Simulated scan of single mutants.
Amino acid sequence: MSDIEVPESHPRYQSLLTRHRIEDGVEKGITSPQGLIAQGRGEAFDYLLGERTLPSVDRAERVAAAHLLRARHPVLSVNGNVAALVPDELITLAEATGADLEVNLFNRTEERIHAIVDHLREHGACEVKGTTADERIPGLDHERAKVDADGIYDADVVLVPLEDGDRAQALAEMGKTELVIDLNPLSRSPQTAAVPIIDNVIRALPNITTHARDLADASSDQLDDVIAGFDPETVLTETERAIRTGGD
């Protein structure tokens, strides 16, 4: 048993666990009610993918790890659903890659920002950005435009799990290398990403961390070799095919 009253042997255990974490996040003020809808949409795509990480996606996760390790200033962007679902995994990945954590929300209030920051600190994060919001991403009129000048605004590589498509496009237009985790290969976020990761965030973050640890002692040239030749279109095409054929 875990933090829900469902045995781990239950065939839908992982799905029920993630739903519970989102519900709990809403109660704590971490996630918004809209996050429940987003979670359900993602689950549908994951079900069609066979709830597994495809080989091409695992390669993308290794490339993402190389980008984070090679970066001048990597940042992991955190929204409410990500904070509720994988707080420990976020912190572990940040430690493995030297990345900053920054909270960024569409439905932004100071209460939610501080609730997420406190939540991450309770899970062991030492520093979490996102409260200053002293810069804006050009071209966006909503609250996700607000970023820290010494965080996402300055970053050269940004991991953006469960991202809004317009902000993904705006970050790309700023010249940032975007690593996008999204279960829908047809959405704008992975379509604009340098590295689209079509995977469930609960699998993707641990996978990227594993690759980052494996590459920890790699030279810059070796990391460049991992990154070189990566084709985002291959990931998008293969995952769309898997979804259309029921995971085969």
Rank of each mutant, 00 (worst) to 15 (best):
D217T: 11
G35E: 03
A83E: 03
P161H: 06
T18E: 15
P185Y: 07
T131V: 14
I116F: 11
L54W: 06
D24N: 15
P138N: 04
V75E: 07
A133M: 14
F45D: 06
R112Y: 00
A172Y: 07
V226R: 06
D118I: 04
E23S: 14
V157A: 07
V78P: 00
R121D: 01
D214R: 15
V86Q: 11
N207F: 09
L171K: 05
D166Q: 15
L36H: 08
D3R: 14
M1H: 09
I198F: 10
A38E: 09
H142V: 02
P7Y: 10
Y13D: 06
A94F: 01
H114N: 12
I227G: 03
P74D: 01
R203D: 11
L76T: 04
P74N: 08
E43D: 12
P11N: 08
V157G: 05
G98Y: 02
N200W: 09
D118E: 14
V128N: 00
D164L: 13
D224N: 12
G175D: 11
G29C: 01
L16A: 09
L179N: 04
V180M: 12
P74K: 08
F230M: 08
K129R: 14
G35W: 06
E51M: 13
A115E: 12
A99T: 05
D134S: 07
L16E: 13
H119N: 00
L236V: 04
D24V: 07
E178Y: 05
L236N: 01
T97A: 10
L105I: 04
G246L: 04
T237D: 14
P87G: 10
H10V: 09
G151M: 03
A242F: 05
L183G: 04
T210C: 15
D58Q: 13
S56D: 15
V78A: 02
L159P: 00
T177Q: 10
N81W: 00
V103S: 03
R12I: 01
A83H: 06
V82E: 06
H67S: 09
P7M: 03
